[in-house]
Amino acid sequence: MSTGNMNLTLKVWRQKNNNTKGALVDYKLAGISPDMSFLEMFDVLNEDLITKGEEPVVFDHDCREGICGMCSMFINGRPHGPKDLVTTCQLHMRSFKDGDTIVVEPWRAAAFPVVKDLTVDRSAFDRVIAAGGFISVNTGNAQDANSLPIPKMQADAAFEAAACIGCGACVATCKNASAMLFVSAKISQLALLPQGQPERYRRVQSMVAQMDAEGFGNCTNTGACEAECPKGISLENIARMNRDFASAKFVSEETI
């Protein structure tokens, strides 16, 4: 059915559910086109498996345009594969060669338990946001949007931090499974904006506490997260969070 000429060997993590052990399983694929996306290559594999009466590989994906943050494959030792600044769904087969062997594993972290095959549970991220990743403003409370000028540089920096898609690649690649890049991106976005100031020191304390409670590891500043983040979220955010955390704990009078 496919139009290309690449032959590949896939080694894919198969695991029935969280209570069973998984293993890498080998699959051979032929006729893959370099114009396919990595997930379309998986569609071909699944179509094959279904035809053969086997169970297709379960993996998370939705938008397939690099923005929802749902896709999450650890490909040949790197989250979202070999190309920088792209998500799995935006990775194309032209980044591989005919005859390649590709190992595909799920994100691995205690805080991201495997649900099935390549699908993991990232709800820990939502709980971190629920702990403080917001500005407490009820609908209808807002003043005119232009009554609060924000320097462009600051607004742009906040936007860059806000570009995080919550994919979890940072956690997946970090040797410590630390979530500092994700958490700091949200904290930074709000800390950079005047609207975020009233809750600034509360927020950093409660979000860090929740992050710790979820069982993520501790940052050792290896920088792997920044290098692998598909949205180029900067390590500066972590520094900013660290700074704010110190201010919150040792300077501000707010305790949580």
Binding site: V103, R108, G215, G217, N218, T220, G223, A224, A227
Partner: peptide
């Protein structure tokens, strides 16, 4: 703690693609 944060390790882990060996 950091070891505990990833109880199951990767079969293939390409750390050199994104960080310095000594930082790891």
């Amino acid at each position: 703690q950091n070891k505990k944060a990833r109880p199951q390790t990767y079969a293939v882990y390409n750390g050199s693609a994104n960080s310095k060996w000594y930082s790891r």
